[in-house]
């Protein structure tokens, strides 16, 4: 198939970016979106143009490295799919495809379509852990965890930290990410001891990173390749309120 690609190019974080238009022929329907970009890059090399930079690594939908807003949708038009698992048969011959970076103040562009998502790491560093010294853990079966709680924690833990939630949000809010990370640990008995401290610290780190506010649109969950539910945002709202109230009255 033949495609027109309108692709964002930007030299560095401080530079102005703009779109560049390229045409690509003989794209296989069986190739993934990223393989199509590989093909374009080989073509650009031949034309003496610097290849387009984009983030990618595992190419099997789990590492969360790939990004790209494709025709206005983070990870493209398919539901529950990362860009690396999006295949070209979902497009038609002659289509024009607009490819942009994940846009948010908290995700500055590194180059072209590559953005810096280290703000997510900082949120985790603030409290996205259970304090357990290596070697000090009790037996794995010492603490039974109700299966339902464990399953809910697992649903949250499925978050791959790709940032599609932020990119899809009109306000670039990181609530779905933060709530999934906090929710995973808060739901488990192991995480209860630090629950209050965790939510306060993680929300404060999230706010400090320059993300916007949640307006309960639900776009994040719709864009999420792992279908993380809005329930975790509700849970974070609840846990945070409780923690604040406890702090005031303690």
């Amino acid at each position: 198939m033949k495609l027109i690609l309108k692709i964002w190019r930007q030299d560095g974080p401080q530079d102005e970016g703009d779109f560049e238009i390229h045409q690509i022929d003989q794209v296989s329907e069986d190739s993934s979106f990223l393989e199509m970009l590989d093909q374009l890059n080989e073509q650009l090399l031949g034309e003496g143009i610097e290849p387009i930079l984009f983030d990618h690594d595992c190419r099997e939908g789990i590492c969360g490295t790939c990004s790209l807003t494709i025709n206005g949708l983070p990870h493209g038009p398919e539901n529950s799919t990362t860009t690396c698992q999006l295949h070209m048969r979902k497009f038609s011959d002659g289509d024009t495809i607009t490819i942009e970076p994940f846009r948010a103040r908290a995700f500055p562009v590194v180059r072209d379509l590559v953005v810096d998502r280290s703000a997510f790491d900082r949120i985790t560093q603030a409290g996205g852990f259970i304090t357990v010294r290596t070697g000090s853990a009790p037996d794995g079966n010492a603490l039974p965890v109700p299966k339902d709680d464990s399953d809910l924690a697992m649903d949250a833990a499925a978050c791959i930290g790709c940032g599609a939630c932020v990119a899809s949000c009109k306000n670039a809010s990181a609530m779905l990410f933060t709530s999934a990370k906090a929710g995973h640990l808060n739901l488990l008995p192991q995480g209860k001891a630090e629950k209050d401290k965790r939510v306060l610290a993680m929300v404060s780190a999230m706010d400090g990173a320059g993300f916007g506010n949640c307006r309960n649109y639900g776009e994040c969950s719709a864009a999420c390749p792992k279908d993380i539910s809005l329930d975790y945002i509700a849970k974070l709202n609840r846990d945070h309120a409780k923690a604040k109230i406890k702090k005031i009255f303690s």
Binding site: W8, E100, N171, A172, S173, G210, G212, S221, A223
Partner: peptide, 21 residues
């Protein structure tokens, strides 16, 4: 909130699509 939200997304998408909202 609106001011903060605007600042958080300084660059709009070329194509703005809404899936669920």
């Amino acid at each position: 909130l609106i001011r903060e939200n605007r600042a958080a997304r300084p660059h709009a998408n070329e194509i703005e699509v809404t899936k669920r909202a």
